[in-house]
Design a protein around this nucleic acid. Structure first.
Length: 313
DNA sequence: GTAGGCTTAAAAGCCTCCGC
DNA sequence: GCGGAGGCTTTTAAGCCTAC
């Protein structure tokens, strides 16, 4: 159980989060807050509804003592919290959120690369979301995988206890047109940075500007070859919430993003939706049954010494 | 393989500009 | 004068690269 390619990917994505000191420090504060929000004997509803409280959780590490040190790590912390939450809500599905770009399969990395003349810029992706195809190789225990490279040798699923990048790249190449990908641009404040997701979404939507030697994708992989691609924005925001109404420039800048705009609060119509809405909006194809069912099945496995204990709940 | 250096990206608050 | 929009300053974290 929880030994498919997407689920091992998920574990490695979360373990990478805990590999940074920023997230480890924040987690000491966040964990009890999250546990309190969930309450005893929580169900899938409490898990999903954490999306309404992510801003509250994030702010518990702000306030007093928020010097330059925590300030500069704030972006990493917010990205990490969003990544943790999305993976928790998609547990048991074929949806995985990845913060560490080097974990992302190379064909996906290539497809979202923007080429500005000879310059390839692909570092703008805060969180990369992958919906793995609904094909047998992604739904079975990796111990049952039997994949051969072009010269007939078996590709081992694991190397040094980690997913073999060769296998990941092989599959992403073979089944590329069945993959879905998403980018979630995470920013703690909203108004200062709303231009960034707006402009990138424009570039991705236009699929480059051939006359200007600006293009998307390389090595033969392009987002147009994927089943679906979405660009989303997720903010705390650290600014006063009262500053945002349907007519604010910063709100208008992100209302038309292909994947929508979200924040860590309850939904305010025509301003921003709760992050918990991102799943049904963008990634619904990745659930094996549905989000509630998958989470309900997973809850008994979250405890210590269980397969999903890496969430550190 | 490890240590250290370098590059890049990140944020809050303050400041300025401008239209009403 | 007021408030929204946009820009600047400063310091730090993470990750890659290089040298040993």
């Amino acid at each position: 159980m929880y030994n498919t390619i997407p689920d091992i990917f998920r574990r490695e994505a979360i373990e990478a989060l805990f590999g940074t000191t920023t997230f480890q420090n924040c987690w000491q504060t966040w964990q009890p807050v999250i546990q309190q929000l969930l309450g005893a004997n929580f169900t899938e509803n409490e898990i999903i509804n954490l999306g309404d409280h992510l801003s509250t959780i994030f702010r518990t590490t702000g306030g007093i003592g928020r010097g330059q040190g925590e300030l500069s790590g704030g972006g990493t912390a917010w990205e990490s919290l969003v990544c943790w939450y999305i993976n928790l809500c998609t547990v048991g599905s074929r949806i995985v959120a990845i913060k560490k770009m080097s974990l992302v399969p190379n064909p996906i990395q290539d497809s979202i690369t923007v080429n500005y003349g000879n310059f390839a810029c692909n570092t703008e992706s805060d969180l990369t979301l992958i919906v793995f195809p609904n094909l047998n190789d992604y739904n079975i225990d990796i111990a049952q995988l039997n994949l051969l490279n072009p010269v007939g040798q078996q590709i081992l699923p694991l190397r040094n206890g980690k997913l073999n990048k060769l296998l990941i790249n092989f599959l992403a190449d073979r089944d590329f047109s069945h993959y879905e990908a998403g980018i979630i641009q995470c920013k703690t404040n909203w108004n200062d940075n709303a231009q960034i997701p707006m402009l990138w979404d424009m570039i991705y939507s236009a699929n480059g500007f051939p006359g200007r030697n600006i293009s998307i994708g390389r090595n033969g992989y392009a987002i147009s070859g994927l089943t679906r691609f979405t660009y989303s924005f997720a903010t705390v925001p650290t600014n006063q919430r009262g500053n945002y109404n349907p007519n604010s420039v910063s709100v208008k800048r992100v209302t038309n993003l292909s994947g929508g705009n979200y924040w860590g609060n309850t939904t305010t119509p025509n301003v921003a939706r709760s992050l918990k809405e991102i799943f049904t909006n963008n990634y619904v194809n990745g659930f094996n049954t549905n989000i509630r069912n998958d989470i309900r099945t997973a809850i008994p496995h979250l405890g210590i010494n269980n397969p999903l204990s890496y969430f550190a709940l």
